[in-house]
Deep mutational scan, measured.
Amino acid sequence: GSMEQGFLPKGWEVRHAPNGRPFFIDHNTKTTTWEDPRLKIPA
């Protein structure tokens, strides 16, 4: 929902695949990933 959306880094969006699995869109680089960007520790 909109709650989890608010925690994503700037430029990211979460969508759900037809099977219900969430995936993440990085509008900054125009890419998608199954990995939650929030789980990655910034270098």
Rank of each mutant, 00 (worst) to 15 (best):
residue 31 T to P: 01
residue 5 Q to D: 11
residue 22 P to A: 09
residue 9 P to R: 02
residue 33 T to V: 06
residue 35 E to F: 14
residue 16 H to M: 15
residue 17 A to Q: 06
residue 4 E to G: 13
residue 42 P to W: 06
residue 5 Q to S: 13
residue 18 P to T: 08
residue 20 G to R: 01
residue 19 N to T: 05
residue 16 H to P: 02
residue 41 I to H: 13
residue 6 G to F: 08
residue 39 L to S: 10
residue 40 K to I: 12
residue 35 E to N: 09
residue 2 S to T: 13
residue 17 A to T: 13
residue 10 K to I: 09
residue 37 P to F: 00
residue 4 E to Y: 09
residue 8 L to K: 02
residue 36 D to A: 00
residue 17 A to H: 08
residue 27 H to N: 08
residue 27 H to R: 01
residue 38 R to C: 05
residue 22 P to C: 15
residue 42 P to T: 11
residue 35 E to C: 15
residue 26 D to W: 01
residue 5 Q to F: 11
residue 28 N to T: 07
residue 23 F to T: 07
residue 16 H to W: 15
residue 10 K to H: 11
residue 18 P to S: 11
residue 2 S to H: 14
residue 24 F to Q: 02
residue 32 T to D: 03
residue 42 P to Q: 12
residue 10 K to P: 15
residue 4 E to S: 13
residue 14 V to E: 10
residue 23 F to E: 09
residue 3 M to L: 14
residue 29 T to K: 06
residue 31 T to A: 06
residue 19 N to A: 01
residue 29 T to V: 02
residue 39 L to P: 08
residue 25 I to K: 04
residue 21 R to Q: 12
residue 20 G to H: 04
residue 4 E to W: 12
residue 31 T to N: 06
residue 28 N to G: 04
residue 1 G to I: 13
residue 23 F to H: 06
residue 19 N to E: 02
residue 37 P to H: 01
residue 16 H to G: 04
residue 42 P to S: 11
residue 7 F to N: 14
residue 10 K to Q: 13
residue 36 D to G: 01
residue 25 I to P: 06
residue 6 G to E: 09
residue 35 E to W: 13
residue 5 Q to E: 14
residue 39 L to I: 13
residue 22 P to V: 13
residue 21 R to I: 09
residue 16 H to Y: 15
residue 29 T to I: 02
residue 1 G to L: 13
residue 39 L to E: 08
residue 32 T to I: 15
residue 19 N to G: 08
residue 41 I to Q: 13
residue 30 K to I: 04
residue 14 V to T: 05
residue 7 F to Q: 15
residue 40 K to Y: 11
residue 4 E to L: 12
residue 21 R to G: 06
residue 1 G to T: 12
residue 17 A to S: 08
residue 29 T to G: 07
residue 33 T to W: 08
residue 42 P to E: 11
residue 43 A to V: 12
residue 27 H to Y: 07
residue 37 P to T: 01
residue 11 G to W: 03
residue 30 K to L: 08
residue 23 F to R: 07
residue 33 T to M: 04
residue 28 N to Q: 06
residue 31 T to H: 07
residue 23 F to Q: 09
residue 18 P to I: 08
residue 38 R to D: 03
residue 1 G to P: 13
residue 40 K to R: 10
residue 32 T to S: 09
residue 1 G to D: 13
residue 20 G to T: 15
residue 5 Q to W: 08
residue 2 S to I: 12
residue 42 P to I: 13
residue 17 A to F: 05
residue 38 R to H: 04
residue 35 E to Y: 14
residue 27 H to D: 04
residue 43 A to K: 11
residue 41 I to Y: 12
residue 23 F to L: 11
residue 28 N to D: 06
residue 19 N to F: 00
residue 2 S to Q: 13
residue 24 F to T: 01
residue 1 G to E: 14
residue 9 P to M: 04
residue 22 P to I: 14
residue 8 L to I: 03
residue 6 G to K: 09
residue 18 P to D: 07
residue 24 F to A: 00
residue 9 P to Q: 03
residue 31 T to Y: 06
residue 20 G to F: 01
residue 23 F to C: 15
residue 42 P to K: 11
residue 35 E to Q: 13
residue 35 E to G: 05
residue 16 H to E: 07
residue 1 G to R: 11
residue 4 E to K: 10
residue 18 P to K: 13
residue 1 G to S: 12
residue 14 V to C: 15
residue 9 P to N: 05
residue 42 P to A: 13
residue 35 E to D: 14
residue 9 P to G: 03
residue 38 R to T: 05
residue 30 K to P: 02
residue 15 R to I: 08
residue 3 M to C: 14
residue 26 D to C: 09
residue 23 F to Y: 15
residue 9 P to I: 04
residue 12 W to D: 04
residue 31 T to V: 07
residue 29 T to S: 08
residue 16 H to I: 15
residue 34 W to Q: 04
residue 8 L to M: 08
residue 28 N to R: 05
residue 30 K to E: 09
residue 28 N to F: 07
residue 26 D to Q: 01
residue 10 K to W: 07
residue 11 G to R: 02
residue 25 I to S: 03
residue 12 W to C: 04
residue 29 T to R: 05
residue 8 L to H: 02
residue 36 D to N: 00
residue 40 K to H: 14
residue 35 E to M: 09
residue 20 G to C: 10
residue 36 D to F: 00
residue 10 K to C: 15
residue 12 W to G: 03
residue 30 K to S: 10
residue 42 P to L: 10
residue 32 T to P: 04
residue 27 H to V: 07
residue 29 T to N: 09
residue 37 P to M: 01
residue 43 A to Q: 11
residue 27 H to P: 05
residue 4 E to A: 14
residue 20 G to W: 00
residue 10 K to R: 09
residue 22 P to W: 07
residue 9 P to V: 03
residue 8 L to Y: 03
residue 32 T to G: 06
residue 8 L to Q: 01
residue 20 G to I: 00
residue 38 R to Q: 03
residue 18 P to L: 08
residue 36 D to L: 00
residue 27 H to F: 07
residue 14 V to K: 07
residue 28 N to C: 15
residue 42 P to H: 12
residue 25 I to Y: 15
residue 9 P to W: 04
residue 5 Q to G: 13
residue 34 W to Y: 08
residue 17 A to C: 15
residue 4 E to D: 13
residue 27 H to T: 09
residue 5 Q to K: 12
residue 1 G to Q: 12
residue 12 W to T: 03
residue 19 N to S: 10
residue 33 T to H: 09
residue 9 P to Y: 02
residue 13 E to K: 00
residue 11 G to H: 03
residue 23 F to W: 05
residue 40 K to E: 08
residue 30 K to D: 10
residue 31 T to Q: 07
residue 13 E to M: 00
residue 32 T to K: 11
residue 15 R to E: 05
residue 6 G to Y: 08
residue 42 P to R: 10
residue 34 W to K: 03
residue 24 F to L: 02
residue 17 A to P: 04
residue 25 I to V: 11
residue 2 S to P: 12
residue 38 R to E: 03
residue 22 P to L: 12
residue 27 H to M: 09
residue 33 T to E: 02
residue 32 T to N: 05
residue 7 F to V: 14
residue 2 S to C: 14
residue 36 D to E: 02
residue 25 I to T: 06
residue 26 D to K: 00
residue 24 F to M: 00
residue 36 D to Y: 00
residue 12 W to R: 02
residue 17 A to Y: 06
residue 22 P to M: 10
residue 15 R to Q: 08
residue 2 S to G: 14
residue 15 R to D: 04
residue 23 F to P: 06
residue 13 E to S: 03
residue 8 L to F: 06
residue 34 W to A: 03
residue 19 N to W: 02
residue 32 T to Y: 11
residue 7 F to M: 14
residue 7 F to H: 14
residue 14 V to A: 05
residue 1 G to V: 13
residue 18 P to V: 08
residue 39 L to W: 10
residue 20 G to D: 06
residue 4 E to N: 13
residue 13 E to A: 01
residue 31 T to I: 08
residue 3 M to W: 13
residue 12 W to P: 03
residue 36 D to T: 00
residue 37 P to V: 02
residue 13 E to I: 02
residue 33 T to Y: 09
residue 6 G to T: 11
residue 23 F to M: 10
residue 11 G to E: 04
residue 26 D to N: 10
residue 17 A to G: 09
residue 36 D to K: 00
residue 1 G to M: 12
residue 33 T to K: 02
residue 32 T to E: 07
residue 31 T to F: 07
residue 23 F to S: 07
residue 6 G to I: 09
residue 31 T to R: 08
residue 37 P to K: 01
residue 39 L to F: 09
residue 17 A to M: 13
residue 32 T to W: 15
residue 34 W to N: 04
residue 6 G to D: 09
residue 41 I to P: 12
residue 29 T to W: 02
residue 37 P to Q: 01
residue 33 T to P: 01
residue 7 F to Y: 12
residue 21 R to P: 08
residue 4 E to R: 10
residue 13 E to L: 01
residue 14 V to G: 03
residue 2 S to L: 12
residue 14 V to W: 00
residue 15 R to T: 06
residue 12 W to K: 02
residue 15 R to V: 09
residue 39 L to Y: 09
residue 7 F to G: 15
residue 23 F to I: 15
residue 10 K to E: 15
residue 22 P to T: 07
residue 19 N to Y: 00
residue 17 A to V: 04
residue 39 L to A: 10
residue 13 E to H: 01
residue 31 T to C: 15
residue 20 G to L: 02
residue 20 G to S: 03
residue 28 N to W: 06
residue 37 P to L: 02
residue 22 P to H: 15
residue 36 D to Q: 00
residue 35 E to A: 07
residue 22 P to K: 10
residue 8 L to R: 01
residue 24 F to R: 00
residue 37 P to C: 12
residue 30 K to A: 10
residue 29 T to Q: 04
residue 31 T to W: 05
residue 43 A to T: 10
residue 1 G to N: 12
residue 39 L to R: 07
residue 25 I to H: 06
residue 2 S to D: 12
residue 5 Q to R: 10
residue 20 G to P: 00
residue 11 G to K: 01
residue 10 K to Y: 09
residue 28 N to V: 07
residue 5 Q to C: 15
residue 20 G to E: 05
residue 12 W to E: 03
residue 34 W to L: 06
residue 26 D to T: 00
residue 30 K to H: 14
residue 20 G to Q: 03
residue 22 P to R: 09
residue 13 E to N: 00
residue 39 L to D: 08
residue 21 R to V: 10
residue 28 N to H: 06
residue 8 L to G: 02
residue 11 G to S: 02
residue 40 K to C: 15
residue 36 D to P: 06
residue 26 D to P: 00
residue 29 T to E: 05
residue 5 Q to H: 13
residue 3 M to K: 14
residue 27 H to A: 05
residue 16 H to V: 15
residue 41 I to R: 10
residue 37 P to S: 01
residue 15 R to W: 04
residue 43 A to I: 12
residue 6 G to H: 12
residue 6 G to R: 11
residue 15 R to K: 11
residue 16 H to R: 11
residue 21 R to A: 07
residue 29 T to A: 05
residue 41 I to E: 10
residue 18 P to Q: 08
residue 8 L to E: 01
residue 27 H to W: 14
residue 6 G to M: 13
residue 33 T to N: 02
residue 19 N to R: 01
residue 15 R to G: 08
residue 28 N to K: 06
residue 7 F to E: 15
residue 15 R to F: 07
residue 30 K to G: 15
residue 30 K to N: 15
residue 14 V to I: 13
residue 38 R to K: 03
residue 18 P to F: 06
residue 21 R to L: 09
residue 22 P to N: 07
residue 33 T to S: 07
residue 10 K to A: 15
residue 15 R to N: 05
residue 24 F to H: 02
residue 13 E to D: 02
residue 29 T to Y: 02
residue 43 A to S: 12
residue 43 A to R: 10
residue 30 K to Y: 05
residue 41 I to V: 13
residue 22 P to Q: 10
